[in-house]
Amino acid sequence: MIMDKSTHIFKDDINIEDLGEGISRQILGHDNELMMVKVNFEEGAIGKSHSHPHRQTTYVDSGVFEVSLGSDVRTLKEGDAFYAAPDEVHGVLCLQKGSLIDVFNPSREDFL
């Protein structure tokens, strides 16, 4: 489904996709150029290192995460954020149960 600027999104109406291993996600909104996704992590869950051609910025909505961007590893907590450039290897380890808000440009067609 392609959303437009007049679409309102209510969290209770969004499907929660169980990705396994303590991770789930909800696609909060998207069109062809932009996508926002909430990713929920249980303590100890790992967002495995990966790369993709999309620009990604991520906001730590809650919890504490060890974030790897290339060889740089830092601990981020609620209110912190990071940016992953296209094709940059990145991943997370959840140190305290929480959620991340990912924004991608362009949209992640592989999530749909």
Rank of each mutant, 00 (worst) to 15 (best):
S62D: 14
V67C: 14
L93A: 13
E42V: 12
E109V: 06
L100Y: 04
H52F: 05
N40D: 14
I101V: 02
D31N: 07
L19C: 09
S24L: 10
S107V: 13
G20Q: 07
P53N: 15
L28D: 05
I23K: 05
G79W: 10
G47D: 02
S6E: 15
N40S: 15
D80A: 12
G44L: 09
Y59V: 03
M35P: 01
E21V: 06
N15R: 13
K77N: 13
G98A: 01
S68P: 10
S62I: 14
V60A: 07
H90C: 04
Y59G: 01
M36L: 12
R55Y: 13
C94S: 04
S68W: 06
I16W: 08
F10I: 13
P86C: 06
H50V: 10
E21R: 04
E88D: 13
I2H: 07
L19V: 12
F10P: 04
M36H: 05
D72E: 11
D72H: 03
V89D: 09
I27V: 13
D18F: 08
G98W: 03
S107I: 10
L19T: 12
P86W: 04
H90S: 06
I27H: 06
K77M: 07
D110W: 07
E33K: 07
K11C: 12
F111G: 00
S6D: 15
T58R: 00
R108L: 09
A45V: 01
S107Y: 08
G79R: 08
E78P: 07
L34N: 00
H50M: 09
N40L: 07
L93S: 12
H8I: 14
D72G: 02
F65I: 02
D72Y: 04
G79Y: 09
E78K: 14
N40W: 04
F10W: 11
I23N: 05
Q56R: 00
I2V: 13
T75F: 00
E88P: 00
E21T: 07
S99R: 08
Y59A: 02
I16E: 15
H52T: 00
S68A: 15
D31P: 03
D102I: 03
D80T: 05
L93W: 14
S99P: 06
G63Q: 06
Q96G: 08
S99I: 06
V73H: 11
N32E: 12
T57Q: 10
G79H: 10
D12G: 03
K11V: 14
S6V: 11
G70M: 03
R25P: 02
H8W: 09
S99V: 09
I9R: 13
E33Y: 10
G22H: 01
E42A: 10
D80W: 06
E78R: 11
A81C: 01
N15V: 14
